[in-house]
């Protein structure tokens, strides 16, 4: 690895200034699991790395206002997946974090880094898309917040501008009766980069309130089948109308239609598209089964219908 300097900024402003002055040759550094590989391979030649992990809040998971949850960008995958507040309300994100690489790598890889690399196959992204997370960015102009779907711009490209860095991800409240399932397909059975991933999330249904609309709000996000992670809006809308087996198949097909996959060394576009339908259907079915099981455990009305 060619030499570079390792810098610890005193505060956000200094970090921002270092990154801005580096003009791309000074790289933000958190878990390093991607940067070190690319540096070793000679794909990037940083003059210096700026370790952002020590800045206030970067490694914190804390409740925000109005039931939001704030996850510091430098929190590791394991830290996120094992945190009681995440486990309590955002099981979908727990599943996604736990699907990344290996246990020891998840002790280094950070949730913020997963977003900042902007790989279309980033495993936490479909979960964050479903949860409609908001990215908080610090930069020369101060703090700004953008929806996660605007943070991903293209393969390896984010909305970060010169001198900016991701500080945290803000998760909107997720009701207790929300359910999510993350499915991914790799070449090996665990730990591979996703060939396809699909997150399915249902926010509020009639788990607690049998008079609520039968379908609730559905969200479906796809990974590794487009230049960025994608939401499958038409599939979501279809599920609002119909969650019968036939309706699930229609939604799964619409999710596949929303995919914009390419052929690469991991799989063909045709396979990826077909797998979106399979994983989406399985995800929807699993969410419904999960809800139905939860409803069966409710004391009164829920299980009867």
């Amino acid at each position: 690895m060619q030499p570079f300097d390792y810098l610890i900024p005193g505060d956000h402003a200094e970090a921002s200034a270092l990154l801005a002055a580096g003009n791309g040759r000074v790289r933000p550094f958190m878990g390093g699991t991607d940067l070190l590989i690319r540096t070793r391979g000679g794909f990037v030649r940083p003059q210096a790395v700026v370790d952002l992990k020590g800045l206030p809040g970067m490694k914190e998971i804390r409740p925000g206002d109005d039931g939001w949850l704030i996850i510091g960008a430098a929190c590791t995958m394991n830290q996120v997946a094992m945190h009681p507040l995440v486990q309590a309300r955002y099981d979908l994100l727990v599943q996604a974090c736990n699907s990344v690489a290996s246990y020891q790598l998840r002790n280094r890889a950070t949730i913020g880094g997963n977003c900042c690399n902007a790989s279309p196959a980033a495993d936490t992204a479909p979960a964050l898309y479903c949860l409609e997370a908001v990215a908080e960015i610090y930069g020369p102009q101060g703090i700004r917040r953008i929806p996660i779907a605007q943070f991903f711009v293209g393969p390896g490209k984010t909305a970060l501008r010169s001198g900016e860095f991701l500080t945290s991800l803000h998760l909107p409240p997720s009701p207790q009766d929300a359910r999510g399932v993350f499915n991914k397909l790799g070449r090996t059975k665990m730990g591979d980069i996703s060939v396809v991933s699909v997150a399915v999330y249902r926010r509020s249904g009639r788990l607690a309130d049998p008079t609520a609309p039968a379908t609730g709000e559905w969200r479906i996000a796809l990974g590794a089948v487009g230049p960025t992670p994608l939401r499958a809006a038409e599939a979501e809308a279809a599920l609002m109308q119909d969650t019968s087996p036939a309706g699930i198949r229609v939604a799964a097909a619409l999710a596949a239609a929303a995919a914009r996959p390419i052929d690469d060394i991991r799989a063909s576009a045709a396979y990826r598209r077909a797998m979106v339908a399979v994983l989406a259907r399985r995800g929807i079915e699993a969410v419904l089964a999960d809800l139905s099981a939860a409803r069966a455990q409710l004391p009164a009305a829920g299980g009867a219908s």
């Binding site: 390792y6 550094f29 878990g31 390093g32 699991t33 070190l36 790395v49 246990y103 020891q104 790598l105 002790n107 280094r108």
Partner: peptide
């Protein structure tokens, strides 16, 4: 546990 090749 961490992979020590991934720690500066």
């Amino acid at each position: 546990p961490v992979n020590s090749c991934m720690v500066l």
